[in-house]
Amino acid sequence: MVAQPDSDVLWARALTHAHNGSPALRGVSIGVREGEILAVSGPRGSGKTTLLRCLSGQFRPQEGEVWFNSTPVHTMGPLTRERLRRDRFGWIDPEPVLVPELTAWENAALPLMLRGTGRRAAKKTALEWLERLDIGGCARKRPYALLHSERQRVVVARALVGAPTVLFADEPTAPLHRAERAHVLRTLTTAARSHGITVVLATHDADTAELADRTVTLLDGRRVNTVHLPHPPEAEGRAACSLSV
């Protein structure tokens, strides 16, 4: 067993995972340093989401190891991993999945309340984060009354409110337009840098990856250094058709 490097807050070795037989990860090793923003890029289906889920303890990798702060995550039981996710990790979904029955601030305060923080303190912290993300005015609205970008910002606030050690963002800006995308990303990265939160950001967008300190590229479940995709060939038979007509 190889020891975890000291500078790495999260470290994975030879992760292999398959979804119901279909391979998603084939021996990916990765190290995340403390306080950095790491982009995991790659086209759709390259295993980004699976990697993030393995790292955050949602999936137990079928082979390989995941270490968080010198603690093995891959050997933890479900309850311990659940507590780890609650106390140390934050998660942002590609789409804003909020609890539809709760208001924006209650959604944002949910991680704190789940940890047992008092309602008043949780509300105060959640409202502060909503203000920081420019959606303080929507705090009392339910998710259905919010715009898509506002919902996504509530999700960002919910992920940041508990001051997690590592924040996993799985394509956080995929459903947004470019202007909103830039805004959400900027707020996310600024907040992470100012609070020293490590961010693992999955994206297939080169512009998004530019905001990160370091980029790791995945292709077909393997880590690659550079992606050389072949140029799309000419449509087959086009020349023949043009000749024949």
């Binding site: 479900p78 659940e82 780890l84 106390d87 998660w91 949910l110 789940l114």
Partner: peptide
């Protein structure tokens, strides 16, 4: 089910 799955991803205890 979708909301419950999101809560589980957040780390909401299954017992809760």
């Amino acid at each position: 089910a979708g909301t419950t799955a999101a809560l589980v991803r957040l780390g909401a205890p299954a017992t809760m």
